[in-house]
Amino acid sequence: MTEPATAPEVASAPPPVIEFRGVGLTYPGPPPVPALRPCDLTVLTGDYVTVVGPSGSGKSTFLNIAGLLDRPTSGRYLLDGVDTGAVRDAGRTALRGRRIGFVFQSFHLLAHRSALENVTLALLYNGTPRGQRPALAREALERVGLGHRVDAVPSRLSGGERQRVAIARAVVARPSLLLCDEPTGNLDTVTAESVLSLLDQLHREGMTLLVITHDREVAARGRRTITIRDGVLKENDAAARESGVRT
């Protein structure tokens, strides 16, 4: 007797990298100040989202919540399917170290450490065995085009090279999300373009990007652009229908 055919297993889609469900943050008063009004947002694996808005609009609050630096006062934030509100502070720190890479406008490199050492230090707190760290750091620097500058200290690097070291440090642990805060703010036009091209390359390789910027040209590099104004997060109607953004 022939065994009945079984349907092939279908791999389930991974959870969204970012899922906001009514997430908002209000600073206590008096009077209370709503820095980010309750919103829904979904960012899928491999997405490239840019976030724009004027000074004081809520961009920094949004970044701090997405980066697990602040806790929202309302709603739920799921990162890779993990309900971050249910995780204690130590667990949030570990989750941030494993799942999120940060790139800042001011680089935040240690002045007296080489490029290799700056990148290696990013692996100190995520459980990577000591013996594996230098090779992984060197691989990350090669990935951003700085394999020939591993021994240079930041003062011997150009602004663009320093930002590339910062990006290597952010991606060395292969995070789920690369969170960039004004990544070209301190760079001239030509250097900024080279850094943006690197971000494009990382996106093509499958990295999920969330870029905070005040620059409309930088914002245009993303596949989706979200605007924050007076704490209200909005996306254009077509993109919102596709991605699930509601305010």
Rank of each mutant, 00 (worst) to 15 (best):
T45I: 06
D70A: 14
T93F: 06
S55Y: 03
D47V: 13
G75F: 02
L68W: 12
N64K: 11
T73V: 06
R71L: 15
D83G: 05
R71Q: 14
L68F: 12
D83Y: 00
G46C: 06
Y48N: 13
R92E: 15
L79C: 00
L68H: 07
T93W: 03
T84G: 04
V49P: 09
G58Y: 08
P54I: 11
A66R: 05
R92K: 13
T61P: 02
D70N: 12
G53K: 05
P72H: 01
V49H: 09
R71S: 13
L78M: 09
D70Y: 09
D89Q: 03
G53D: 05
G56C: 04
D83V: 03
G85I: 04
T73M: 07
R88M: 03
L44H: 13
L69D: 02
A86C: 00
I65T: 05
R76Y: 00
T50C: 11
L44D: 11
S57G: 08
P72A: 02
V49L: 14
V43I: 15
D83S: 02
G85S: 08
V87W: 09
V52K: 08
N64L: 05
A86I: 01
G67F: 06
G53R: 04
P54T: 13
G75H: 04
G53A: 05
V87M: 13
G53C: 01
L69K: 05
P54A: 15
T93C: 14
D70T: 07
A90M: 06
L95M: 15
S57D: 04
V43F: 12
S60G: 10
T50M: 07
D80E: 06
S74I: 04
L63R: 10
L44V: 04
G91Y: 07
D89M: 00
L79K: 00
D83L: 00
A66L: 13
L78D: 09
P72L: 01
G56P: 03
R71D: 11
L63C: 09
T45A: 14
D80S: 12
V51F: 13
G58I: 11
A86Q: 11
R76A: 10
S74E: 11
G81V: 01
T93D: 15
T84K: 04
S60L: 10
T45P: 13
I65G: 03
V82K: 02
D47C: 12
S57W: 02
L68R: 07
G53I: 01
G58W: 07
V43Y: 12
D89S: 01
G46R: 06
V49Y: 11
V51Q: 09
G85A: 07
V52I: 15
V43G: 12
T61E: 05
A86K: 07
G58R: 05
D47I: 13
T45M: 06
L69F: 07
A90N: 09
G46D: 07
D80G: 10
V87R: 11
D83W: 01
G75V: 04
Y48H: 14
T61H: 04
A90T: 10
T50G: 03
G56Y: 02
R76T: 11
R92Q: 15
V43D: 12
L95R: 09
S74Q: 13
R76I: 01
Y77C: 10
